[in-house]
Amino acid sequence: MQADERRRVILERVAEQQSIEAQTLADALGVSVMTIRRDIKRLEQDGFLRQTYGGATVHITKSVELGFNSRALQCSAQKRLIGTRAAQLIEPGQTLFLGEGTTTAQFAQFLPPHPHLLVVTASLSHASLLCSRNIPVIVVGGKLHADELTMTGPIAEATLARFYADVCVLGAAGVDPVVGVTEMDYEVAALHRMMMERARHVMVLVDHSKLGFKAPAVVAPVQMIGNLMTDSEAPEPLLAQFRDCGMQVSLVASSKEYGAPQSA
């Protein structure tokens, strides 16, 4: 196993379990503890992990403290894995639109600090997290929602109109094959629709509990989604309906399987 692949597996294991012993990682990957500690040191330098005393245990850095609410506790392991895998798809030099939400927060947590990467977001919590890892960010401004620390309204939309993104990365309150992508707040829905319209490729990151759910504010039809990434607990009949709509569906399984997301 090459170093890059080994570090990807380490990130996935830590994302799933929150903390893990270096010896456990070494045993699982069939390498020495010193090799694991060198990998951890590199990941720490890149802002992904933090070592505890003696380097025996690894923890996720900068877990979402701003804008925390009860939604972050729902399907938290699945959200971490979805965010981790989605972040691996981003390439150096890309411009991203990043929507608000707890799953996109995990994406921001694990986004590599690629050269010349630029993230445009309406979320103050996401922006703070990305800035702490030296990733350039533009915050759109506008009316601040105190509960989610996200901004909406004409000022946000005017700023967004000045950009075109390679990739739009969104969460959603619900994704239904007929109704489409939906949100609880109509202003958030309007901003996310604009992000989708001004991006070359759209990724929607949701855990299985959001599939088939219909929130009141419609963002866009599912045909605007390029890649729907969810977890392996998603019901297959519903996934088949999404595939029939023409999108790629990526299933993120437990990191214990050490494989890439399944796609169809």
Rank of each mutant, 00 (worst) to 15 (best):
M203S: 02
G212D: 06
H201A: 11
G174H: 02
K210V: 02
M203R: 00
R198N: 15
R198E: 13
E197D: 15
V169Y: 01
Y186H: 12
A199K: 00
V181H: 04
M194Q: 15
T182G: 05
H201T: 12
F213K: 14
D185C: 05
V181G: 07
R193F: 11
L205H: 01
S209V: 11
Y186I: 13
M184Y: 12
V175G: 07
A172Y: 06
V204P: 07
A189F: 13
M196N: 03
H208T: 09
A189W: 04
K210A: 03
F213I: 15
D185A: 06
M195V: 05
D185K: 02
V204N: 04
M203L: 15
V202K: 05
V175F: 00
M184I: 10
V202G: 06
M184S: 09
D207N: 03
D185T: 07
Y186Q: 10
M196S: 07
C168N: 03
T182H: 02
P177R: 01
M194H: 12
P177E: 01
V179A: 15
A190C: 11
D166N: 15
A165M: 09
R200F: 09
S209C: 10
M194W: 07
A172I: 05
A165Q: 10
V204E: 05
Y186C: 08
E187L: 14
A172E: 13
D176W: 00
Y186N: 07
C168L: 02
E183F: 06
M196R: 05
R200I: 04
R200G: 07
M203C: 10
M195K: 07
V179L: 12
A190V: 11
D166T: 07
G171D: 09
S209W: 03
V181T: 11
L205V: 13
A199R: 00
T182A: 08
D207E: 02
V188A: 14
G171K: 00
R200K: 14
D176I: 10
M203H: 02
M203V: 10
L191Q: 00
R193H: 15
